[in-house]
């Protein structure tokens, strides 16, 4: 029973975790991309489309990541090259992504998808209890585990990570030291796009192998909230994602048990939890300020 619950929690948390670790890197470079929802839903539709037309969920995942990167490049060009307002451009990206994915996915509505198979690791999957949880998952779940460790290691232990943080904390100084602020930010935004695309593809290829319009249902926004909750620390993003996964699963279980409580109120739980968590975390202003990348959301124009 407990094993089954943990497995569903991981499934519900994985798309959030993938998108949140991507956005965490983006924000560490000083860019606020509010278009996570748009990139995610593009990843979902592309992932489904590629899976159905090639018959390969693995190619579908790659397609989802590519779609996420391409979508993020629109945002990068408008905000980094043309220094447009990042908040407004992020909203535009979300509205655009929701519209375009609806258009692209119209012919796929109601079609059966192909579910991504789990990738059992020989010998380890049969371990008691942790076997299925840690070693009997599909490739995207492993990737989400790896992303947390990888991003934490990259940001704190590598030179490139240090440069990325410098760009996010003080773009003028980073520029004066000879680093390409815009270049670093382009790469970061594209990474964020790829991760959001993977998160979206997870929904349409592994979570529910179907295409439904607006199927991300606000998960991109929850991922953004997770980054704030995590104070820009990858391992805390993971905790947050699994907490949200747990809330989602709780809601399904409560509905299944037929508790005399309207299902609409249960469905509100993840959104209300986001609001409550944001309030709780913002109560500690000093810690938040300390961790917030100082140049977050500010445009940079190199003076030559």
């Amino acid at each position: 029973m407990l094993e089954a619950i943990i497995l569903t929690v991981i499934t519900a948390a994985t798309p959030l975790l993938l998108a949140a670790t991507g956005e965490l890197v983006v924000e560490k470079s000083g860019v606020l991309n509010l278009g996570v929802e748009g990139m995610m839903v593009m990843g979902a539709v592309a992932g489904f489309a590629v899976t159905v037309s090639t018959g390969s969920p693995l190619l579908g995942i790659v397609g989802g990541a590519v779609a996420g990167v391409l979508t993020s490049l629109i945002f990068a060009f408008v905000t980094l090259t043309l220094v447009a307002n990042q908040v407004a451009s992020g909203l535009a990206l979300t509205l655009f992504g929701l519209g375009l994915s609806g258009l692209m996915g119209e012919s796929f509505v109601g079609q059966p998808g192909i579910k991504l198979q789990s990738l059992d690791i020989p010998g380890l999957t049969t371990l008691p209890f942790v076997g299925k949880i840690l070693f009997g998952q599909d490739i995207l779940v492993y990737l989400s585990f790896a992303a947390v460790f990888g991003v934490a290691w990259f940001l704190n232990r590598t030179r490139a990570g240090l440069i990325l943080r410098a760009v996010g904390d003080n773009h003028a100084s980073a520029h004066a030291l000879g680093y390409s602020v815009i270049g670093v930010r382009y790469v970061a935004v594209m990474f964020g796009g790829a991760m959001a695309g993977l998160g979206g593809a997870y929904l349409s290829v592994a979570y529910t192998p179907l295409w439904v319009e607006n199927m991300t249902a606000g998960r991109g926004w929850i991922a953004l909230a997770l980054v704030v909750f995590a104070s820009w620390m990858p391992w805390r993003a993971a905790i947050g994602a699994y907490l949200f996964g747990a809330v989602t699963v709780l809601q399904f279980h409560a509905q299944a048990l037929g508790i005399g409580f309207p299902s609409q109120f249960l469905a509100m739980l993840p959104y209300l939890a986001t609001v409550i968590v944001l309030v709780a975390i913002s109560g500690n202003r000093r810690a938040t300020l300390f961790n917030t990348p100082s140049s977050l959301g500010k445009s940079f124009v190199p003076d030559r």
Binding site: L34, V87, A217, G218, W221, L224, A225, V228, P262, Q264, F265, A267, M268, Y271, L272, T274, V275, L278, V279, S282, G283, R285, T288
Partner: peptide
């Protein structure tokens, strides 16, 4: 929430959209 706790209003105002739509759904059903 923004003025008292410094909570990001973009995320809270958006989350409340989902809640309000679900609330309307419950009311009419």
């Amino acid at each position: 929430l923004k003025t008292s706790f410094g909570t990001n209003e973009i995320l809270t105002s958006l989350m409340l959209v989902y809640c309000s739509n679900l609330f309307l759904d419950w009311m009419v059903r």
